[in-house]
Amino acid sequence: MNYNWNWGVFFQTIPAGDETYLTWVIHGLGWTIAISLCAWVIALVLGSIAGTLRTVPNKKLAFIGHTWVEFFRNVPLLMQLFLWFFVVPELLPRDLAMWVKQDMPAKEFLTAVVALGLFTSARVAEQVRAGIQALPRGQRNAGLALGLTQTQTYRFVLLPMAFRIIIPPLTSEFMNAFKNSGVAYAVGVWELVFVSRQMVEETGGQVIESLIVPTVLYIVCAYAANRVMAVIESRAHVPGFIVAK
C-alpha cells in the first residue's frame, strides 16, 4: 500500500477563496457542536415531556406520548431529515411555504436541528419512561397519599429520582447526538462530514488526512459529552440511593 502522507494539506488554500482547509475544519467543528447541542436541548425537553406522558394514568395523554415515540423512533434519521427539508415545506400553506423555501434564515441548520432533536427526543423519552417505571410503585402512592397532586408527585417525587437513575443511558444518547449530527451534511450544512467529503474530493488523494481529523474531532466531542455527564452524575448523586462510581 503506497500512500503519500501530506499533512500540509490543511494549510493549503481552498480552490475558491483564500481560506485554508484548516479553517474549514474549524468551521465544520463549530457547526457540528452547534447542531448537536441545540438538538440535545430539544431532545431533552420534548423527550422528558413525551416520556413522562407515557407513564401518566390519563389514557389520552399516555397515547400521545406513545405515538410521539413510535413515530420518531421508527423512521431512519436521514429519512426524517429529508421529510423536514423537502416534504414539510410542500405541505405548508402557500405563503408560509414560499417564505420557508426562499427567505428562511439558516434553513439547513434549523432543519437539521429539528430533525436530530425530534429523533433523539424519542430515545430520551424511552429512557425517561424506563426511569419512572423503575421507581418503586410506593413512591407515587406515598406522594399522592400525602396530598400532593398528580403534577406535584411528578415534580417533587418521581422525576427527580427518575432523572438521576437514567443519567448513564442519557449519557450515551448525548454522545449519539454528536455522532448522528453528521447526517446534516445531506442537506448541505458545512459540518465535519461535509468538510471531510469535500476535502477528499478536492485534495486528490489525501484521503486519510481528510478523514482522520474529523473522525478524531467526533471522538473528542463524544468524549467531552461523556465527561460533562459524568460531572453531572456525581453532582446529582443522592447519598445512600444510587451508587455512583
Binding site: 454528536f178 448522528n180 447526517v183 471531510s196 477528499v200 478523514l211 474529523p214 473522525t215 467526533y218 471522538i219
Partner: peptide, 13 residues
C-alpha cells in the same frame, strides 16, 4: 466511538 457515517466513508475511500 466513531460515527457510522464516518466509518462508511473510511471504508469506501
Amino acid at each position: 466511538s466513531i460515527p457510522l457515517l464516518m466509518m462508511i466513508l473510511w471504508f469506501f475511500f
